[in-house]
């Protein structure tokens, strides 16, 4: 009886892969301090859990000064404004980096490199730098998100531009339209739904980022959260966490609905 042979394995390659993986893990796990547990760890986690399940409802609305709703509104505002700024600023980058808009490969290459450079620059570090420039507060957060999101939005937008049908542009060029007219009447209608959908998607991401920017003093709900943590006011931490989760889930739902409508 002829049996199908087992596929031959490249033993050398497997040894190389698993060997290097093993080495990587030995190196990684050997550096983890296993004695880092504080004695109070159990106690504090219990306090956090009880705080999260019995949140400080009074904090939701305080007639004067900082409360949860105002913090969340601030966070939302940072995300809206930051996303809008980046959605506008990334359009030239997107055209710069897309293959079908420039003939020179060099231009496209530099555009793509610029975008990936911006992408790898974390928004928190940007926020730290903007705090030094415009002072602590929400505005620094807006600028940081606005600049950081250019990286991802520009990449997605440029992929959208690269995927358009060349037909309408050629038709317009044949009727003697100039470059601006071609862009407005042939390219823009094709890419606009994609642009809007990606912008909404980035808005969802930015909302999550905006809720942590306050940890370093760039506005939003993060600032009261980190204060509550430092003063070990777990009931307040609980209500803020709850507020963030509810806001993120709601905004995700609305944005998801809009994205389905657009595309």
């Amino acid at each position: 009886m002829i049996r199908p042979q087992k596929p031959k394995k490249k033993i050398g390659l497997y040894i190389l892969i698993y060997g290097s993986l093993l080495l990587l893990y030995v190196w990684a796990f050997s550096g983890v301090p296993m004695d880092g547990f504080k004695d109070t760890a159990g106690q504090i986690s219990k306090a956090i859990f009880s705080g999260i399940f019995s949140p400080d409802w009074d904090y939701v609305y305080l007639p004067d000064g900082e409360d949860l709703l105002r913090g969340l509104l601030d966070t939302l505002a940072i995300a809206v404004l930051g996303t809008f700024i980046s959605a506008i600023l990334c359009i030239p980058f997107a055209f710069w980096a897309s293959k079908n808009m420039n003939r020179a490969r060099f231009t496209t290459g530099t555009g793509k490199f610029m975008l990936s450079f911006i992408r790898t620059f974390p928004e928190l570090v940007m926020a730290l730098l903007f705090i030094k420039a415009v002072g602590p507060g929400s505005f620094a957060g807006v600028l940081a998100l606005g600049l950081h999101s250019i990286g991802m939005l520009g990449k997605l937008f440029s992929e959208e531009v690269e995927a358009i049908d060349p037909g309408p542009s050629e038709a317009l060029a044949a009727t003697g339209a100039n470059r601006i007219q071609t862009l407005r009447l042939a390219v823009l209608p094709q890419v606009l739904p994609g642009f809007i959908s990606y912008t909404l998607y980035r808005f969802e991401i930015n909302l999550r980022s905006a809720s942590i920017l306050g940890i370093i003093g760039a506005g939003g709900i993060g600032t009261p959260l980190i204060f509550a943590m430092q003063s070990r006011d777990w009931e307040r931490v609980g209500i803020i966490l709850l507020g963030i989760i509810v806001m993120v889930v709601l905004v995700d739902m609305i944005s998801g609905f809009l994205r389905k409508r657009v595309v």
């Binding site: 301090p33 942590i212 943590m229 966490l241 963030i244």
Partner: peptide
């Protein structure tokens, strides 16, 4: 997935103290 990683880290720092853990 709605909780940002930095927030998780801040909570775990409160529990375990400073350090990579």
């Amino acid at each position: 997935r709605t909780i940002p990683e930095l927030l998780l880290a801040a909570i775990f720092v409160a529990i375990f103290g400073l350090g990579p853990l």
